[in-house]
């Protein structure tokens, strides 16, 4: 009886560990997938994607792939973030710690606009 309880316990523990392991694995994979999309490319006078949805705590990186300098400046009331002038291949990163919608634009080319939605 004791022995069967021990085996059952061991089996539960093993399965549990396995289950936990696979769960963690899939979580890491999805996080990596999300990480790869947390980049905004600036090219041909536009932000791509123009609207990016990210979880709280995510860091978004903007990379200027254009031949022209651009900036990334938020237009919400508290002016949450503001980059310096980004030349070709220069990057700017910002970590979003609060839920909300963050519209932004390029202060050199005001027609260039984008949005980060933090959920």
């Amino acid at each position: 009886m004791r022995r069967s309880v021990f085996i059952a316990g061991l089996a539960t523990l093993t399965l549990g560990t396995l289950g936990f392991g696979t769960g963690q694995k899939s979580y890491v994979a999805s996080a990596q997938e999300k990480m790869s999309t947390m980049e905004v490319k600036i090219d041909n006078f536009s932000f791509g994607p123009a609207t990016l949805t990210v979880p709280v705590g995510a860091t978004v990186t903007w990379t200027n792939r254009d031949d022209i300098p651009h900036t990334v400046v938020s237009t919400d009331d508290s002016k949450t973030f503001k980059s310096k002038v980004l030349d070709t291949d220069e990057k700017f990163s910002f970590t979003f710690s609060k839920v909300g919608t963050y519209p932004y634009f390029c202060s050199i080319h005001p027609k260039m606009t984008g949005k980060v939605i933090v959920q």
């Binding site: 022209i68 300098p69 900036t71 310096k84 002038v85 030349d87």
Partner: peptide, 12 residues
């Protein structure tokens, strides 16, 4: 104002 007088380089 827009670029806060930062040191310019390149085309600008």
């Amino acid at each position: 104002w827009e670029l806060e007088g930062q040191k310019l380089k390149g085309i600008l």
